[in-house]
């Protein structure tokens, strides 16, 4: 039976461990993970513990920093909401309707993943500044898009769009048309079918995409700083606060604010994981 198999593999290990390399691959994975990710991240946490509570609190709750949280989380929330609406629409159109150039549009949706954030930042600024293509059209109407909070939201919409489209799209592709047909046969209008049949199916995916776009927006730096104007208390995002403190050699302050951001991103990572397992359960129960 075990011709060619090393004798110890055949006899001692469970059938699942027939393949070699478990110790090597897992060992290397853990080693590299610790070296690149876990030890440096723990350096941040440990450095935070060297501060007294008063120092920590003073650093993370000064008015300028609190204003930056409000902007960062508020703008990310608005951008993620816009992306939830338009991302769903784009996913819907891409899955359900045929139109010329669809493949190109589909590929283009990933542009924000592929385009370096600094390039996106200067390009959006060039368009939206008062002498830019869009800015020059809109500014006479009294709306300024660049160098204020509007700019932050627009940059974050750009960055977050693919997250919603790419989480909703596959779920919409797998959705069973039979259910919709049944709803129509039972007399539902198209809108009722969408609200009560289609929306519950894609709801978890939409929420996951929304959470991912939000989480990405909170951490985003490159695309935002060019367009935000970076006025303290008004349009200064939290990552920029960290950079500012570092440039003044205030390592303790930078670390404290970074620790707050790290906790926020952990919380969102856990939330997204929970949402994804909910989504899998939903689709698993249907299959």
């Amino acid at each position: 039976m075990s011709v060619g198999l090393p004798p110890e593999t055949a006899s001692r290990r469970s059938p699942k461990r027939v393949l070699p390399g478990f110790k090597l691959t897992l060992g290397y994975t853990l080693f590299y993970l610790c070296l690149i990710v876990l030890i440096p991240l723990s350096a941040l946490v440990l450095k935070t513990f060297t501060l007294t509570w008063e120092q920590f609190w003073a650093a993370v709750s000064s008015p300028r920093v609190v204003a930056s949280y409000q902007l960062t989380f508020g703008a990310s929330l608005i951008a993620a909401l816009v992306n939830a609406v338009f991302g769903l629409l784009v996913a819907w159109v891409l899955v359900r309707y045929p139109f010329p150039g669809k493949k190109i549009i589909d590929a283009l949706v990933d542009l924000p993943f592929a385009l370096p954030t600094a390039v996106a930042g200067i390009s959006l600024t060039a368009l939206l500044a008062s002498n830019g293509l869009i800015g020059s059209l809109i500014e006479p109407h009294g709306i300024q898009l660049a160098f204020n909070r509007n700019g932050v939201v627009i940059a974050l919409i750009f960055i977050g769009l693919p997250f919603v489209v790419r989480t909703v799209q596959p779920v919409l592709e797998d959705a069973e048309k039979e259910l919709e047909e049944a709803a129509t046969c039972l007399g539902a209008s198209r809108w009722q079918t969408f609200r009560h049949v289609i929306f519950p199916t894609i709801g978890p995916a939409l929420l996951t995409g929304f959470a991912m776009a939000f989480a990405r927006g909170v951490g985003e730096y490159g695309s935002v700083i060019f367009i935000a104007g970076n006025m303290p208390m008004v349009s200064e995002i939290t990552p920029l606060i960290i950079i500012g403190k570092l440039e003044q050699y205030d390592y303790a302050g930078a670390t404290a604010v970074a620790c707050v951001m790290l906790i926020a991103s952990f919380a969102m990572l856990l939330l997204i994981n929970a949402l994804q397992s909910w989504q899998r359960q939903r689709s698993g129960a249907k299959a």
Binding site: P40, L41, K47, Y221, P239, Y251, M261
Partner: peptide
């Protein structure tokens, strides 16, 4: 382990740079 592998995606780029400054920087 799978979650930990994904971890760097959810960390802000600025924080990702900062952790190495805290490891290897002058202070």
């Amino acid at each position: 382990l799978t979650t930990l592998v994904d971890l760097p995606f959810s960390v802000s780029p600025v924080v990702s740079g900062l952790i190495y400054v805290l490891m290897f920087g002058a202070q």
